[in-house]
Simulated scan of single mutants.
Amino acid sequence: MERSAVTAAVAALAVFTAGCSSVGDTPAPESTSTATSLAAEVPIGYNPCTDVPAAVMAAERQESTGRADADAPNGVKWRGCGWVMNTGSGYGVRIRTTNLTLSMVRDRNLPDTHEFAIESRQAVSTRRENDDTGCWVNVEMKGGTLEFLIDNPKSNKDTGQIDACQIAKDLAVKVVPSIPASA
């Protein structure tokens, strides 16, 4: 992929996440009681940067953009990596473990929240208000979740016509089987 295409995709992802209400691309819990129930660290036993199957990302035409770690002031943490479509005209994704639990994600009451299961793991998809280009899917893990953050502007020639939450769910279905049962 040309460096300019990668740069443009990363910039698009940055624009998408700039409007989030907290550091780390995911709205942080608002109440102190929720924040204090956070695990000190993200779930262990799964490293998205090395454990997401390369074959899945190749089939999705995704290239790594490297580490995408973040910390919010209230203790929320994310550890993982980002990818962009190697055509330069498709969705971008960050796949990260976080100490946000499914109950914390549900408690945010974000628009277009849907609960579902992938294999034996519970999952929740959400959007930010007035944003149909992005979607989060959080999949249950011990001590938090595995988070898929999709950025899919309508202007993307290859994927802009596909709903961002559908992309996130489809990708999660392909990746979740790689999570060890112990994680």
Rank of each mutant, 00 (worst) to 15 (best):
K157C: 03
W83E: 01
A183P: 11
D158Y: 08
A117K: 15
W78M: 15
W78R: 12
T133P: 01
T133F: 09
A39S: 13
S103L: 13
V173N: 11
G90L: 01
A11R: 12
T159R: 07
F16L: 14
C135G: 03
Q62N: 07
I179N: 06
S22H: 08
S103N: 14
M1S: 15
C81Q: 02
G144S: 06
Y91V: 07
E119P: 00
P111W: 01
Q122S: 14
M57R: 08
A168G: 09
T34G: 06
V124L: 09
A12G: 14
N156P: 02
K169Y: 06
A181V: 14
D170L: 02
V176M: 08
D69F: 01
Q62C: 04
V23F: 07
S89N: 14
K169S: 13
C165L: 00
A72K: 00
H114C: 04
M104H: 09
P177Y: 11
P43E: 02
P180I: 05
Q166T: 12
A183K: 08
E129Q: 10
F16V: 07
A18H: 12
F148S: 08
D71H: 11
V175W: 03
L146P: 04
T7D: 15
A164Y: 03
I167K: 02
A28W: 00
E115F: 05
I167T: 05
F16M: 11
K77M: 12
R96W: 01
G80D: 04
N152T: 00
I44P: 03
